[in-house]
Computed example of a mutant assay.
Amino acid sequence: MTDCGCEKAKADLEEYLHQELSREEYSDIAEHLAHCADCSDEAHVGRVLTDAVRRACRDTAPEALRVQVITQLRVTIAH
Rank of each mutant, 00 (worst) to 15 (best):
M1I: 01
M1H: 01
M1T: 03
M1S: 09
M1Y: 03
M1L: 04
D3S: 10
D3E: 11
C4T: 14
C4G: 07
G5S: 08
G5N: 08
G5H: 06
C6M: 11
C6P: 07
C6W: 07
E7F: 07
K8W: 01
K8L: 03
K8H: 10
A9E: 10
K10G: 11
K10M: 11
K10D: 13
D12E: 12
D12I: 00
L13S: 09
E14M: 02
E14S: 06
E14V: 02
E15F: 00
E15A: 09
E15D: 09
Y16P: 00
Y16S: 05
Y16L: 04
L17E: 06
L17W: 03
H18W: 01
H18A: 05
H18D: 04
H18T: 02
H18M: 01
H18G: 02
H18V: 00
Q19S: 06
Q19D: 08
Q19M: 02
E20F: 01
E20D: 12
S22E: 08
R23V: 08
E24Y: 09
E24W: 08
E24G: 05
E25Y: 08
E25M: 08
Y26S: 11
Y26I: 05
Y26E: 12
S27R: 14
S27Q: 14
S27M: 12
S27E: 15
D28H: 10
D28M: 13
I29P: 06
A30I: 06
A30Y: 11
A30M: 12
E31H: 13
H32Q: 06
H32A: 04
H32I: 07
H32K: 07
L33E: 00
A34H: 14
A34R: 15
A34G: 13
A34D: 14
A34L: 11
A34P: 00
H35G: 10
H35F: 04
H35P: 01
C36L: 09
C36Y: 07
A37H: 12
A37P: 02
D38H: 13
D38W: 09
D38L: 11
D38R: 13
C39K: 04
S40M: 13
S40W: 12
D41H: 11
E42V: 12
E42H: 15
A43R: 01
A43L: 01
A43I: 02
A43H: 02
H44P: 00
H44L: 06
V45K: 15
G46D: 04
G46H: 03
G46F: 00
G46I: 00
R47F: 03
V48A: 14
L49M: 15
L49Y: 14
L49Q: 15
L49P: 08
